[in-house]
Amino acid sequence: MNAAAVRSIFLLCLICLGALLSGCERQSPEPGEEVVYRLKWLYNINTAGDLYGLEHGVFTAHNLKVAVKPGGPERDAIREVELGRAQFGVASADQVIRALAKGAPIVVIAQLFQGNPLQWIYRGGNADYAGPDDLRGKTVGITYGGNDETIMRSLLAKYSIPPSEVNLFSVRYDYTPFYSGEVDLWPIYRNAEGIVIGEKMARAGEKTSFFVPDLLDVRFVANSLITTRKMVEEHPDLVQSFRSALLTAWQEALAPANTEKTIALVHAYDQNTPQEIIAKQLAATRELMLPENGRFGQIDVAAWQQTERIMLEQGVIEAPVHVDKVLLLDGR
C-alpha cells in the first residue's frame, strides 16, 4: 500500500470520525427550545395522546415546543435519548430493563399503558383457552427475541407447562398461518391489530377472543415514558412540564367527549385504518390505559418488579437491575 493510499484511508477515517462524533454530540435543550419526543412505533392508535398534545395545543399550553417523531422497528427511543438526539421517548418495560442491564442512564417518568396490550388472539369457536393448561398441545405464535417470547415462556414456566407440550411458532408480519388455522394463538397488540384481525374474522363468520397474560398474573409492563437521569437533574421543570402535558394530552384524547376529535386526528396520521376501526381501537385503548383509580400515567412498581423478575428468570438479563430505582413515580 503506497503512502497516498494510507493518507486517503487516514483522511477517510477522520471524516467518518468527525461525522460520527457530531452525531453523538449530546444536546441539552435550552429553555423555550424544541424538545424531541421519539415514539415507540409508527403513528397509530397507540400514539393518539401524543398526536393530540401536538395538534390540539396541549404542549403549547405548557409552553413546550415539541417535535413528535414516529418510531418503528429500526428506531430505538432509549438509544436516541441517551445519545441526546431526543429528550423524551416511549419504550416498553423489557426495553428499559435490558438497557438498564447495559448501564443506560435512563429513568421512567410515567407508565402509559396500565394493562399490557400485547395479548394473543385465538378463534373463540374452536377452543377455550380460559386457563394456561389449555395451551397444551396448541400452536402458539411468538416473535423469537421479542417480549412476547419472554411473556409466553414465563407463563409456561409459571404454570409448569414444559415447552415441549406447546408448539411454538415463529411469527412475522404475515398473519396467513393464523387465518389458515396453522397457528392457534397469535400475538397481537389488542388495541391495534387485535381490532383489525377480529373484524376480519368476524366478517368471515368467526368469533375471536384474547388470551391475556395479565389475567394469569404474568404482568409485563408495556409503553412508558422515559428520559435520562441527567435531564431530570438538570431540567426538572422541563421534565415535569412535559410529563404533565403528555398525561393531560392522553387524558383528553381518551375522554369520551373528545372521541370524534381523536378519531379524526389518528385517521389523519394513519389513513390506512378506517375511522370505524379507529373508533373500536380507541375504546380498547381506553380500557388498557385508564387505571381504575383514575390516576393516569401512574407507575405500577409491582408490575415493573415482576417484569424484571420474569426477565431474570428467563435469562434475558443476567443480574438484577433494581428497576424500582429508576421509576420516578411523580416524575422527580
Binding site: 477515517c13 470520525l17 438509544r79 441517551e82 445519545l83 435490558r98 442491564a101 447495559k102 448501564g103 442512564p105
Partner: peptide, 22 residues
C-alpha cells in the same frame, strides 16, 4: 477492527452505556 475501534472510541469519548455501544 477499524470500525470497531471507531465505535469504542466514540463510546469512551462520550461515556456511552453498553446499551448504545457495547
Amino acid at each position: 477492527f477499524l470500525g470497531l475501534g471507531l465505535l469504542l472510541a466514540i463510546k469512551y469519548c462520550f461515556s456511552l452505556s453498553d446499551y448504545v455501544i457495547p
